[in-house]
Structure formats: structure tokens, C-alpha cells
Design a protein around this nucleic acid. Structure first.
Lengths: 201, 201
DNA sequence: TCGTTGGTTGAATTTTTATTCAATATAATT
DNA sequence: AATTATATTGAATAAAAATTCAACCAACGA
């Protein structure tokens, strides 16, 4: 026998974590295509050869990051919908939490950039495209449902709910972009500005 | 002598136009790095060798497109500011014109995508970065000034004008992204939704 | 201490992409 | 028709990036 299984597993998990974390930052700031395999290995502090011990290609890493980002986003949306709050409070809280998230953690806006790339670009692996085309509609649907409920109660403005949901997410994504582009020097706007798009009074 | 100068110039202009137009579409949908020189030549219907007769590199084309996009955007903003209209009407009109523009012409959203790439990505040529860092603040400033004027008149909501201007442009850019991603199947939301972010009543 | 397992490296190779260039096509001028 | 300047091509070459692999190292058990 050699090393015990646990240590090996620990090493593997650590390396994979380093690789994914470095790749996230690089994919978000340079794009998938411009990120070289050696960029990732250098950022992760390992040799290029070792990259192939841990993953098939950068495309595989990209797909894994996309899947993770969508899963977290969808889970958060499901949680939001379940909360025992009136619809207009859910919207207010969602906006506040999202903006706080961007300020608190760079990775949050990086994940949004990844999803944006995967949505817009035709130069991403088929697998990532499929993950996106299956898993990216839930957030729109959840917000739309909450808005419709609020409209019934009269607390949400009476525009087409689908339009409102699109404006909700496009505004959020736009802010994520700003955060990723200008980083520390950019502070999020007052969340009440966004809330005012949806709320009556 | 051979061919007359005019015809040669006309051929040159035509080719350059074909190249720029193909490159715009490809850069927007695939990104600068994932777009090969042969992708551009194929889309433009010429051989790869001829590309080098008309441009030094794809980076040069990218920079030229960025410069053109910024110039047009800045010119439109200056025109807007000059219009003999009250501030809140200028905001309303700007939103309507921008959304109509996205629906009317694919290239419009492509140009926004290019500017987005140049702003966010670190994998673009230094020249393009410089063009962007110099020329991309005017739209924010113009909208901010119009909003401040409107606030004095009481027609614009009383949030921080800088924040409002950022929300204005992030929302617009988000919608451009949607248009580029979903193309024909996506219709712009009611412009009054966006106008309501800024206007009192 | 030695042997074994599996992590790790970096140079060698293959593949992809960019770039050059000698040869050819075109059309106006003489 | 011959001349000439320039547009155009595609194969040859160069450069960059991805991928493989033989050799090496580190930790553990015997």
C-alpha cells in the first residue's frame, strides 16, 4: 500500500477546488476561448500536465461551473418563492439580497458573467449550451409568478408580468456586469430604485 | 497605368465594409478570441490571404468597430441633450428610441455586445481598452445631467442621480444582451416600465 | 529501509491557428 | 494586343496552444 485513501481524496478535492476557482475568475474576466489551459494551471499553482490529471478539457470545467451556478441560482429562487412573505416583500428582499451578494463576494458576479457568456456566445461547448437552455428559465418563471400574485393584491404595478420579470433579471445582470467590470471602485445603487420598478406607490 | 483609382477605391471600400460587417456579427456572437481570421474571411466571402491585404489583424478590426460604436453612441447622446424638450421627455424619448433601435436592427445590439466585451474582458487589445476607457463615460454623464435637471423641476425621482444613470444604462445593456441572445423570438418590454424607474407619478 | 501507489512535472509531440508569399486574375490604359 | 498596377488566391511556413508521456517524487505500510 501507499498513501491512505483519505489523504489522496483530500488532495484531489483541494486541487479540483483550486482549478475550479481559478478557472471561474479567468473565464469571467477573459472569456472561455481566451483562457489558455496554462493560464488556469498557473493561477492554480500547478503544472499544465497536472491539469489533464484532473479534467478532460477547459470546456468540461466551464460546463461544471455553469451547472453549479444554475443549481445555486435555481435553489435560491425556490427558497424565495417558499418564504412566508407577501409578494411585494419577496421582490424587495430578492433585490436587496442580490445587490448585497454582488458587493460581498466577487465570485457572485463572476458566476453571472459565466451564465451570460453561455447564454449569448455561440463559442461555448454544446454541453454547456444544453445545460443553459434547460436550466435558465426557472428564475424568470418564479419572479413572474410572484409578480402576478402581487398584481392580484394590488401591490405590484400592472404591466405585463413577463415583461416585468425580464426587466427584473436584465437589470440584475446588468449590475453584475458593472460589478465585474469595475470591481471594488463600483458600489451598487440604492435597491429602492429597482424595487420602484415593480412596486405600487 | 492600370485600373482607375476610383474603381480600386470602391473595391477597397466594399471589401472593408464586408469584412467589418462580418466581423461585427462574429465578434458579437462568438467573442473576439473565439473568432478565427478564417471565420471572418469565410463570412465575408473572400480568401484568408486577402484579409491581410485589408487589415493587420482581427484586433485592429475589433478596435475600429469599438471606435465606431462609441462615436455613434456619444453623438446620439449629445443630440439628445440638445433637444428642446423638458428633461423627463428626453428620458422617455431616449428609452423609446433605444428599445426601438434594438428591435429594428440586429447590428444595434451587436454593437452593444462589443462594447460590453471591451468593458468587461481583459482579453482584448490594449488599443480597444484605451478607446473604451476614454470614450465610454459620456453617456453616463449626459443622462446624469438630464436627470439632475429633471429633479430640480420635480419631474424626476429624487434618488442619487449617478445611481439612476447607472441603472438606466445597465438596464439598456441588459436588454441589448437579451436581444442578441434570443434574437427574433424576443420582443422588447413596454418602454413605460423603464420610464417609471425615473419619472415621478 | 524498501517497495508500492498515485500525485506531479516539464519537455516532446500533435494540433490548431495565424501569417507570408509566389503565382494568377482583372481591367483600365497605351 | 501588350502593358501595368493592383486585387486575389491558396499552398507553404511560422507561431501558438493543446495534449501526451516518460521520469520523478512523496507518503505510507511492511
Amino acid at each position: 500500500m501507499a498513501r491512505n485513501k483519505e489523504l489522496n481524496q483530500k488532495i484531489k478535492d483541494e486541487r479540483r477546488e483550486q482549478i475550479l476557482s481559478s478557472a471561474l475568475m479567468l473565464f469571467a474576466t477573459k472569456g472561455l476561448s481566451a483562457t489558455r489551459i496554462t493560464d488556469i494551471s498557473a493561477a492554480a499553482g500547478i503544472s499544465q500536465g497536472l491539469m489533464y490529471h484532473y479534467c478532460k478539457s477547459k470546456e468540461e470545467i466551464f460546463s461544471e461551473l455553469i451547472k453549479y451556478a444554475l443549481d445555486r441560482m435555481n435553489a435560491a429562487c425556490i427558497e424565495l418563492e417558499k418564504l412566508p412573505l407577501p409578494p411585494h416583500q419577496k421582490i424587495k428582499m430578492a433585490i436587496e439580497k442580490l445587490l448585497q451578494g454582488f458587493d460581498a463576494n466577487k465570485n457572485t458576479s463572476y458566476y453571472y458573467l459565466l451564465i451570460l457568456q453561455a447564454t449569448v456566445s455561440e463559442a461555448i461547448p454544446r454541453e454547456a449550451k444544453e445545460i443553459i437552455s434547460q436550466g435558465s428559465s426557472l428564475p424568470y418563471e418564479v419572479i413572474e409568478r410572484i409578480l402576478i400574485e402581487g398584481q392580484k393584491e394590488g401591490t405590484i404595478k400592472d404591466y405585463d408580468a413577463r415583461d416585468l420579470s425580464v426587466v427584473f433579471w436584465t437589470s440584475i445582470k446588468g449590475l453584475a456586469l458593472n460589478k465585474a467590470a469595475f470591481g471594488g471602485s463600483y458600489k451598487m445603487p440604492d435597491p429602492r430604485i429597482l424595487a420602484g420598478i415593480f412596486l405600487n406607490e
